[in-house]
């Protein structure tokens, strides 16, 4: 197996000292997604939040089983003002995606629009394209929510 050369940390680890930070395993930022995919997710989240004034957050990981209840619990903690938040919770292991909207974001994103976005996300996920599905779903949700007049200038 080839490995990328370790050039990020400037730790001076040798064979006789402790390991460098990147050799210790642990939490590499690109363990789940590559840096390119992370940049796509980051841009999609930031731009759709900025465009709509809502606060989109994305959870990728396992959900406890009633997944809806766990997603709503996460949504309640997703920011200072959860009424404006939109949580997209993807659990690839359980093959479930949940979209949770708060009280005021649900006025801009009705359940039918969320269901449409979820449908396009699941069709991408079924093809194995996690990041593409998430980005497309975010685009669809932010298109539906629109650009409020208070954000125009």
């Amino acid at each position: 197996m080839t490995r990328a050369l370790e050039v990020d940390s400037h730790d001076t680890a040798t064979a006789t000292t402790g390991a460098a930070r990147t050799d210790q395993g642990g939490s590499a930022a690109d363990q789940v997604f590559s840096y390119k995919e992370l940049a796509r997710l980051d841009e999609a989240l930031t731009m759709s939040s900025r465009e709509t004034g809502l606060r989109f957050t994305l959870y990728v990981g396992e959900l406890r089983t009633p997944t809806r209840a766990h997603a709503e619990e996460l949504h309640a903690r997703s920011g200072a003002n959860p009424a404006d938040a939109v949580l997209i919770a993807v659990s690839p292991g359980q093959r479930v995606v949940e979209v949770v909207t708060g009280a005021s974001s649900a006025r801009r994103l009705p359940d039918r629009a969320c269901a449409l976005a979820v449908l396009s996300m699941t069709s991408s996920f079924a093809n194995g394209d996690l990041v593409g599905g998430i980005v497309n779903g975010l685009r669809q949700l932010s298109d539906q929510a629109g650009h409020p007049a208070s954000l125009r200038h």
Binding site: E72, A106, V118, A126
Partner: peptide, 18 residues
């Protein structure tokens, strides 16, 4: 303290499986 779980009113959304 800003992120204590707080009720966000009636929640909406959708759910999908694949």
């Amino acid at each position: 303290t800003a992120h204590a779980p707080q009720p966000a009113g009636p929640l909406g959304g959708a759910r999908g499986t694949w």
